[in-house]
Design a protein around this nucleic acid. Structure first.
Lengths: 236, 236
DNA sequence: AGAATAGTGTCTGTAAGACAGTATTTG
DNA sequence: CAAATACTGTCTTACAGACACTATTCT
């Protein structure tokens, strides 16, 4: 089947994106409908081929900007892993992919995308039950596991929020991603006392019939220590 | 320079290995001397090209077995990330690599390797000060950071040990990888009480003029909860 | 005033870290 | 017995989690 068993394979490479956001208090992932073969018409993760002199990180950033309509500079983007099973894509030469996890605040335009492909936000629990093109089910599962872990140990949760946010909004991120309810008083204390997690702007935002909430910006820290919510640690 | 700016790149792919072990109470990494251009004569991480119908995980496992002379089934192997900067390798077509972290117990034969290349164990603090071929400095740094993190939150430390080991040996792993001294009594209590981390075999191993140590085997758990050593969490 | 939301105080249990002390071996 | 190593007990402090309570707004 393949040219020579011991030959160096030449392959093409894609970057596929698991773009997560929170809409209406639920975690959503951006899915597109494939326009071309293979898997035409099937839901899939957005992504595209490595071009010219790009690095894969640049490919991912470009695709992210195209899909979300937002300059990727602000958005969180990180590798999930490489998927290289020989049968994952029927095309020849072989296609391997590097999956990226992207975290976006609730974006102004719902889907957008310069592409003609229909892109839509899908609640993750619904997406997890859907058959996706290629091995995108695996990728989605791994990316979600990564995201849930990272929330514990890093400050990425702020990437789901707008530039300025309230503690309640940050708490809603954790609740949506983990699918749990957190104790508001304890969460508040923990977030504001964690060094470098959030920085108060001094402003306040009025709430619907309640005391106005203080506004915060993301702090310098990337690692959260101690981690958030000890009880949730045994996962997977 | 490159064919067409918007064309799909075809590339070749390698798997490079950061193989760590502990020798003489110090963390070591396996380095080879490059036989061919580019970077001939320079120290580098072991690795090789994706062949035939392999997945990259299989490429990495094959290379690991070749380099260590050990069937990779027993050894811990995990992706670190993809390195795809267009100038990381001068060859054409472009070469991108997927880096793997491998953790091995102190192996019977020091270096071995069916390859003709000179392979040797280098203490990591020495290797970190050495200029390596390609972007292998970056890869080594990232892999070490990953390894140090994983020790906190997972049970991989047992992968550094032989099949049966004492608590003191496991503690030596943490001390070598983290470069710290740990309190022996507290470490002991924590390890044996962490669910699924280690399982007592019932046997004992005599020590040099001391009470014999109980022997353990690695347990089922992969995640460590709560994590090891709260104080060490702020890293990077 | 009452509802709603933000934020603080306080108590309890659990676990981390320090370190004293006990157990079991060799010489 | 002394030295060496393994392991256990206990004390202190810190923090997670529960939840009562105060603060500030809107209607």
């Amino acid at each position: 089947m393949s040219p020579q068993r011991r030959a160096r394979q030449t392959v093409t490479v894609t970057a596929d994106l698991v773009i997560l956001t929170i809409r209406d208090h639920r975690l959503h992932v951006l899915l597109v409908e494939r326009a071309n073969e293979p898997f035409a018409g099937m839901p899939a993760l957005p992504g595209g081929f490595l071009r010219g002199r790009e690095s894969l990180d640049e490919t991912a950033a470009r695709e992210l900007a195209e899909e979300t309509g937002v300059d990727s500079a602000g958005l969180h983007l990180q590798q999930v892993g490489v998927y290289s099973h020989p049968d994952r894509d029927p095309r020849d030469p072989r296609v391997i992919t590097c999956a990226y996890l992207a975290i976006a605040p609730d974006l102004p335009r719902p889907t957008a995308g310069s592409d003609a492909r229909a892109a839509r936000w899908v609640p993750v629990d619904e997406a997890e039950g859907t058959r996706l093109a290629f091995d995108h089910d695996d990728i989605l599962r791994d990316a979600l596991e990564l995201a849930r872990d990272e929330l514990q140990f890093t400050t990425v949760a702020t990437a789901f929020c707008a530039e300025e946010f309230t503690v309640a909004e940050l708490r809603a991120v954790y609740e949506a991603v983990w699918g749990v309810e957190l104790d508001a008083p304890n969460f508040h204390r923990k977030v504001v006392s964690a060094d470098g997690f959030v920085v108060a702007t001094g402003d306040k935002r009025p709430t619907m019939g309640g005391r106005p909430a203080a506004l915060y910006r993301a702090g310098d820290a990337t690692r959260l220590s101690p981690p958030m919510m000890r009880s949730r640690q045994s996962g997977a």
